Computed example of a mutant assay.
Amino acid sequence: MSEEKTFSFTLFEPHRTRAPKNDEPLIEIRPNGRIVFNKKASQLLENSHFCMLGYDPENKALGILPSEDLTPNTFPVRYAAKGAYIGAKKFFKHFEILPSQLIENTPFKSGQFIGINLTNY
């Protein structure tokens, strides 16, 4: 008769747990010149397909003006399942404000503009 073996099983328990979903509006400014809206922030665009961009150097803020019309200076807004984004590298290079690292901030309304501070503070 053989002896019974004792097993010591280690359960699969992934270390990473999903972070709770961020339900706050958030806009990211990426070093590649993309302005990325999470789902909540993309609602501020009110399904506009284009936007004009402005810069306030005194307050270091970006202004996004949603627009339905394609004009020579508008940027297309692309919608995705998790939000929206605008490719705006030309804009950032023009004002020499392309960030070297990701900037993430809560948007604010300023008149018809959606504003975002370009600092991480």
Results as ranks from 00 to 15, higher is better:
Met1Lys: 12
Glu4Ile: 09
Glu4Gly: 08
Phe12His: 06
Glu13Met: 07
Glu13Gln: 12
His15Lys: 11
Arg18Asp: 04
Arg18Glu: 09
Pro20Gln: 01
Asn22Gly: 14
Asn22Pro: 11
Pro25Asn: 08
Pro25Ile: 06
Leu26His: 11
Ile27His: 04
Glu28Asp: 10
Glu28Tyr: 11
Pro31Tyr: 02
Gly33Leu: 02
Lys39His: 15
Lys40Ala: 15
Ala41Lys: 04
Ser42Glu: 15
Ser42Tyr: 12
Ser42Gln: 12
Gln43Lys: 15
Leu45His: 08
Ser48Met: 12
Ser48Gly: 06
Ser48Asp: 06
His49Lys: 14
Phe50Gln: 09
Cys51Ile: 05
Met52His: 13
Met52Val: 07
Tyr55Phe: 00
Asp56His: 07
Asp56Gly: 07
Pro57Lys: 00
Glu58Gln: 10
Glu58Asp: 09
Asn59Phe: 03
Asn59Ile: 02
Leu65Gly: 05
Pro66Phe: 06
Ser67Tyr: 01
Glu68Ala: 04
Thr71Asp: 04
Pro72Tyr: 01
Pro72Ala: 07
Pro76Thr: 04
Pro76Val: 04
Arg78Gln: 11
Arg78Leu: 13
Ala80Pro: 05
Ala80Tyr: 06
Lys82Phe: 02
Gly83Cys: 12
Ala84Gly: 14
Ala84Cys: 14
Tyr85Val: 03
Ile86Glu: 00
Gly87Thr: 13
Gly87Glu: 13
Ala88Tyr: 01
Lys89Met: 12
Lys90Ile: 03
Glu96His: 10
Leu98Tyr: 00
Asn105Glu: 13
Pro107Gln: 04
Lys109Tyr: 06
Lys109Val: 13
Ser110Val: 11
Ser110Thr: 05
Gln112Ser: 15
Phe113Trp: 09
Ile114Leu: 06
Ile114Ser: 03
Gly115Tyr: 00
Asn117Pro: 00
Leu118Gln: 02
Asn120Trp: 05
Asn120His: 06
